[in-house]
Design a protein around this nucleic acid. Structure first.
Lengths: 231, 231
DNA sequence: AAGCCTTAGTGTAAATCTTCAACTAAGTTA
DNA sequence: TAACTTAGTTGAAGATTTACACTAAGGCTT
């Protein structure tokens, strides 16, 4: 770097999280109500400043914020993008490192009574474009939704919205909800087998259906398997 | 954000660029020799602090650094990821927003004589893992290479390593170089037609080959077309 | 000027992949 | 015990992809 670089400043830097879960009606996103200015009282994606005293790195910061807001420690977490500029925060030039986190309905249920009006799971309607949020969080949310909808078509991402153990029918249902269309059962199972991202849970069947269904879990709870061909 | 957030600090923040071009031998990456500590004298990816007085946003910062180092104003630019932590820079907790830029051989040729030992195009050998660079730039470079190698399989990314006008054979050659294998000509042309990311340059044929070849250009120099099925 | 050569561009049959309807299986419910 | 519902599997038909072989268009050599 040239000596000229030394007069560059340090921007405001936060991590922000688009935290999603799935209900039968579709995706919901966790929103929090801002307590402090700017945008006091407005809904926003959860986030926070990086704590240099306790955060070893960005992912640690994201996971700390995630746990604070949801109580969940190690759900699927993916960096979406970093946005930054002089116009997004009245306090000054700011950067936001944005993550996507995926929680299961079980994760959400465990936390529901702790929200008390300062946070809520907001169902996503349509493309998710109608929301008004603090900062540029509505844009970030839209980007996150685009990423999710895209990755549903070619990866195992939907598996991360299910509890640790699930049936193939439950997984297919998640894909169908996110894709917005029905999938053929045998074609779906063929594709899942080909992508090889599940393993059966030995000896565990779910008897909720009329025929007991084999339970499965993701082989890796922190990564995605990619399909050779888009659904 | 809670009041607790207010004692978070502002980290060192830079943009860093993995700038690639292609020669017949394969990819090369632009490295610069650091003039100042830390890592003075070491090779690094080009980068720099964000200039709040002139950079409206992160992409503007990245493009400013890119133009400084290469003279090229609007090549393909894609945000790779943001890395950050307390251990990557001796000066303190730091963040780097990392971009990939793709230049054509023409872009590189225009600038070759300006490098004068403080910068060089370093050919990528093998997986690109053997390099020792300042900071964690070797890791970032490896991530960037992984991204490129992945996107070659399912997108129009290789088109961005060519001059504005090129032939289908030239494009195929780029794919083959990056994939490391030969492709069937008719299958390749069929796939390219299907993906619909090129347009013929009216009336322009390249006579370098024995049969004049139709010239093409990318429909959009700043985005990628994605394939339905991996190559 | 003609023939040869090399590369560009295209056609199509064979091979492969995907879809999806229909079947069998395993339980629960009535 | 039969009926019903869901899980799991099979295989034929249809769709897609591959890749060889062909035609075309020029430049080069004789």
């Amino acid at each position: 770097m040239t000596s000229h670089d030394n007069d560059a400043f340090k921007p405001i830097a936060t991590v922000d999280l688009a935290i999603f879960s799935l209900s039968p009606a579709g995706l919901s996103v966790l929103l929090v109500r801002r307590a402090n200015a700017p945008f006091s009282g407005d809904w926003a994606l959860p986030g926070g400043w990086i704590h240099i005293d306790e955060d070893a790195d960005l992912e640690a910061a994201a996971r700390r914020v995630l746990k604070e807001k949801t109580g969940v420690e190690t759900p699927y977490l993916e960096q979406l993008q970093t946005t930054g500029g002089r116009s997004r925060d009245p306090r000054g030039w700011s950067i936001s490192i944005v993550y996507i986190a995926l929680l299961s309905a079980d994760d959400v249920a465990d936390r529901q009574d702790g929200l008390a009006g300062e946070a809520e799971w907001r169902p996503i309607e349509g493309e998710g474009a109608g929301l008004s949020l603090a900062f540029d969080h509505a844009v970030l949310l839209k980007e996150a939704l685009g990423r999710i909808r895209s990755k549903v078509e070619y990866s195992s991402l939907p598996g991360h919205l299910l509890p640790v153990h699930f049936t193939l029918s439950e997984l297919q249902s998640v894909y169908e909800t996110l894709l917005g269309r029905k999938l053929d059962k045998s074609a779906f199972r063929k594709r899942v087998a080909e992508a090889d991202f599940l393993e059966p849970v030995e000896g565990e069947m779910r008897r909720a259906s009329n025929r007991p269904a084999q339970m499965f879990r993701l082989k890796d709870a922190q990564s995605l398997a990619l399909f050779d061909r888009r659904i």
